[in-house]
Structures are given as structure tokens and as C-alpha cells.
Simulated scan of single mutants.
Amino acid sequence: MNGYITAQEAAQKWGVTSRQVQILCKENRVPGASRMSRIWIIPEDAKKPTGIKHSKERKMD
């Protein structure tokens, strides 16, 4: 699709996992991202969101 990339392509571009990109899209943190069937499409010029939140805190005992 012209002008858009997949979550997997965005993950490679941004240096994160494709799952992390999917989570960012689901949380509406990637402007212009939308879902087509089962895949996220992201504008080619979308910037990596800053301040990625972690859904679960790890405890060090």
C-alpha cells in the first residue's frame, strides 16, 4: 500500500519489536495508524513515539 508500512517494517525502522509497535498503535500513540483486517498500517513518515510506557513493572527482589 503506497504511503504506508506494516508494524513489522516500523519495528525495524524504530528499533523495537513488532509487538511493541502494535501496542503503540492500539493505544493511539502513532498518528495516522489504522487497522486493516488483522494488520496495522502506519504512515511511512510516522515518527517513533517517545516515552514508551511499560504495561507491567518488573520488581527486583
Rank of each mutant, 00 (worst) to 15 (best):
I5A: 10
L24G: 01
A33R: 04
G32M: 02
I5V: 15
C25F: 05
V30K: 06
A7V: 08
T6A: 14
N28G: 02
T6I: 06
K13S: 12
N2F: 07
Q22A: 14
M36S: 02
M36W: 00
Q8F: 05
N2E: 15
A11Y: 10
W14C: 11
N2I: 13
Q22E: 15
V21Y: 01
E9G: 05
N2V: 11
I5N: 06
Y4C: 07
I23H: 04
K13E: 11
T17Y: 02
R19K: 09
E9D: 14
E27W: 03
Q22G: 15
R29M: 08
T17V: 03
L24W: 13
G15I: 12
Q12G: 15
N2Q: 14
R35A: 02
V21R: 04
I5W: 07
S37M: 03
P31G: 00
W14F: 15
A33E: 08
V16S: 05
N28C: 01
A33Y: 07
V16M: 06
L24C: 09
K26S: 13
G32R: 05
A11C: 11
A7K: 10
R29L: 12
A33D: 05
K13W: 00
A7G: 15
V30W: 04
V30A: 04
A33H: 10
R29G: 07
K13Y: 02
Q20C: 11
Q8Y: 04
W14K: 11
M36V: 06
E9L: 05
T17D: 10
Y4L: 14
Q22V: 07
R29C: 07
V30N: 07
N2H: 12
G32I: 07
A10L: 10
I23E: 14
T6F: 12
V21W: 04
W14V: 10
K26C: 00
Q22R: 15
A11N: 05
K13V: 09
S37E: 12
Q22L: 03
E9T: 13
Q12V: 09
G3W: 13
G32Q: 11
Q8A: 14
A7L: 05
Y4E: 08
I5P: 07
R29T: 02
M36H: 04
E27S: 11
T6P: 09
G15L: 03
R19F: 04
I5E: 12
K13P: 05
L24D: 08
R29V: 00
T6H: 10
S34I: 01
G32L: 11
C25S: 13
A10H: 06
V21G: 03
C25Q: 10
K13F: 02
R35Y: 06
K13T: 13
Q20H: 05
V30S: 01
I5H: 06
A11T: 08
I5R: 03
Q12L: 15
A7H: 08
V16Y: 02
T17A: 05
R35F: 03
K13G: 05
A10K: 02
P31A: 01
L24R: 00
I23W: 09
P31T: 02
S34F: 13
S18N: 10
K26R: 12
R29W: 00
R29H: 06
S34Y: 07
Q20Y: 01
G3A: 14
K26A: 13
A7W: 06
K26L: 02
Q8N: 12
R19S: 10
S34N: 07
E9Q: 14
Q20E: 14
I5D: 02
G15E: 09
R35D: 01
K13D: 10
E9P: 08
R35H: 02
